[in-house]
Amino acid sequence: MAVFKVGDRIEVCSKEQGFIGSYYEATIVSKLSDGSYRVRYKNLVEENDHSRLLIEQVSSDEVRPMPPRIIEGKGTQFYSVLDKVDAFDNDGWWVGIVTGKDDFKYWVYFETTGDHIAYPVSRLRKHLEWSNNGFWVLPKKSLLS
C-alpha cells in the first residue's frame, strides 16, 4: 500500500452507497496517527458553505495516487467497445464501459448505477487499476451480461 505525504495529489475512492465506482481528486492535508488521512477535495465543497472546499478524513484503503494520463497517438481511435473508462461527471471520475460511439461522443454504461450516458472524449480517460504491488495496470475488457 502506498504511503502519501502532505501535499500529494491523490484520488479518493468513494465507498458510499450511490457513489461506488467513483474517484474524487484531492490533496493530502495531513496523515493521522491511525494511518488515515485528512484530504482536501479539488471539486467537492462543504454542504453548508459552497465557497469552501470539503476537507474530510478517509481511510488509507480509500486513497490511491493520481493515475498517469495516457495520450493516444494521432489518427488512432481513442476507445473501443467494452473498454473500461473513467468518465468525469458530478465532480468525480466514474468507472464505466464503452458501449458505442456516436459522432463525437462515446456511450458509456455504468454497472453501479445502470446509467447509459454519452460523453465527449475530453471527459473520458482510460481506466487504470492501482495494484497492491504499487503499479498501474490496464483492466481486462469487460463482459456485459
Rank of each mutant, 00 (worst) to 15 (best):
L82H: 12
I117E: 13
G114W: 03
R40W: 01
Y24I: 03
K31P: 04
S33N: 14
S60P: 07
P65E: 08
G92P: 03
W94D: 02
E62V: 02
E11G: 04
T99C: 07
V98D: 05
S22H: 00
V121L: 08
K31R: 15
T99K: 13
V3M: 11
T112K: 14
E47K: 00
P120G: 14
T27D: 09
V81N: 14
P65T: 01
Y23E: 09
V39C: 04
Q17Y: 12
W94F: 10
W107K: 12
T27K: 14
R69Y: 10
R64A: 10
E62L: 02
G96P: 06
M66I: 15
V63F: 04
F88E: 08
V121R: 09
I55N: 04
K84M: 08
V85K: 01
T27S: 13
G21F: 01
F104T: 12
A26P: 00
Y41W: 01
R40P: 03
G7T: 05
S33A: 13
K42S: 15
L53F: 13
F19I: 02
V108E: 05
E111N: 11
R38G: 00
V29L: 09
T112E: 15
K5H: 09
A118E: 11
Y119E: 07
D61M: 09
D34Y: 02
E47N: 06
S60N: 14
V12M: 07
F4W: 02
K84A: 10
V39W: 00
K84W: 09
D89N: 10
H50C: 11
P68A: 05
E47M: 02
R40A: 08
W93G: 04
Q17D: 14
T76R: 12
N90V: 11
E72V: 14
L44H: 00
F110Q: 03
V108H: 02
G18A: 05
G92R: 00
E11H: 07
V45I: 04
D102Y: 11
R38A: 12
E11R: 14
Y106R: 00
S36E: 06
G114T: 10
D34V: 06
